[in-house]
């Protein structure tokens, strides 16, 4: 059954991808990309990767699509006809694809529990992490403890992206509420948004602290919290949003999150362990793991929230600027 669903979803992905190639209307291209992203999130659920599905839906279908639409608002929605020939790209793609198909021929069969990938390193995560780290969600254990250095790097990548967008687009200046923006005339939308935003924020907190037991964690929580403010900015206008969360504060928050994470790692050094060793943080190793994971997940949440929101501010301030002109 799972295989059948998988096949159907993959088929839909293939159709979506093909459609994107030939469409010239960029707005439709971006919307189709959002669909592509949602479909892959479904595939991830079907393949038991619930954490990944959560992230893909929030990031790929959510944030990435919003940013793409924001860009289109500034650059125009029509793609001009391609003047150069598409023969060379086609050739490159066919050769690369053929190489990949050749590579699949010695791959282990799909779904087989005896595959090398499921045999060597992974069994320890499945069998021992609930005792060693003390969390039921193995993905969180691996993410935040066994491979915590990857995740520190990931937080740094988000921080780097915020630096990049900040340097390119800058941040909006505070409180220029003189400009008419937002959707002032849509009363229903305003009321619903006011109702829904607190709920989204509470949900973000839930996702933040429930990541140890179910799907979720700092990253998803940060994205959801940022989405709440983004919704606020879309409905009530950027100037009001920048009064709620000031752009200057975001810079500090984005830095603080990375520092919280790294400081947890450094704390391990002072207690006689290696960098990012949580066992030494408390007298009982499992309690130490728990402290460590909660603190670093908080750090991730803070950086991701601040980074995503400042990236959105960057794009939105450009849009306002374009509107004034």
């Amino acid at each position: 059954m799972a295989e059948l669903i998988d096949l159907v979803l993959l088929g839909m992905l293939a159709i979506t991808a093909l459609r994107i190639i030939f469409l010239k209307d960029l707005f439709a291209v971006v919307m189709l990309f959002g669909i592509y992203s949602f479909l892959s999130a479904l595939i991830f659920v079907n393949l038991d990767a619930v954490d990944v599905a959560f992230t893909e839906a929030a990031v790929g279908a959510g944030i990435a699509t919003v940013l793409m639409l924001g860009t289109l608002a500034l650059t125009g929605r029509k793609e001009k006809a391609n003047s150069h020939t598409a023969l060379l790209p086609l050739l490159v793609v066919i050769v690369t694809g053929a190489a990949l198909i050749y590579g699949t021929l010695d791959m282990p069969p799909f779904g087989d529990p005896e595959n090398p990938a499921n045999q060597h390193v992974a069994p320890r995560y499945i069998e021992e992490s609930p005792q060693e780290v003390g969390l039921p969600n193995m993905v969180t254990s691996v993410l935040a403890s066994y491979r915590a250095f990857d995740t520190l790097g990931e937080t740094a990548v988000v921080f780097a992206a915020a630096i990049g967008v900040l340097s390119l687009l800058g941040l909006p200046k505070q409180s220029q509420a003189t400009i008419e923006s937002g959707l002032k005339s849509h009363l229903v939308l305003r009321v619903v948004a006011k109702l829904i935003i607190p709920l989204i924020l509470v949900f973000a907190l839930y996702v933040q602290f429930h990541g140890d037991y179910g799907p979720g964690g700092g990253f998803q929580a940060g994205v959801i919290a940022a989405a709440a403010i983004i919704l606020y900015a879309l409905v009530f206008g950027l100037p009001l949003a920048t009064q709620v969360i000031q752009p200057k504060l975001l810079k500090i928050l984005a830095s603080m999150g990375v520092l919280i994470y790294a400081a947890t790692g450094v704390a391990g050094l002072f207690f006689g362990g290696n960098f990012l060793d949580y066992n030494v943080l408390a007298s009982d190793p499992v309690a130490g793991q728990h402290i460590g994971i909660i603190v670093i997940e908080f750090g991730i949440g803070v950086t991701v929230f601040a980074a995503i929101l400042s990236i959105f501010y960057g794009f939105a301030s450009q849009a306002e600027r374009a509107n004034i002109q």
Binding site: S145, Y146, A148, D150, G268, N274
Partner: peptide
Amino acid sequence: SYALGGWEPPWGI
């Protein structure tokens, strides 16, 4: 060799 987080390779980084 330095094991991040005290997890011996190949489980840790």
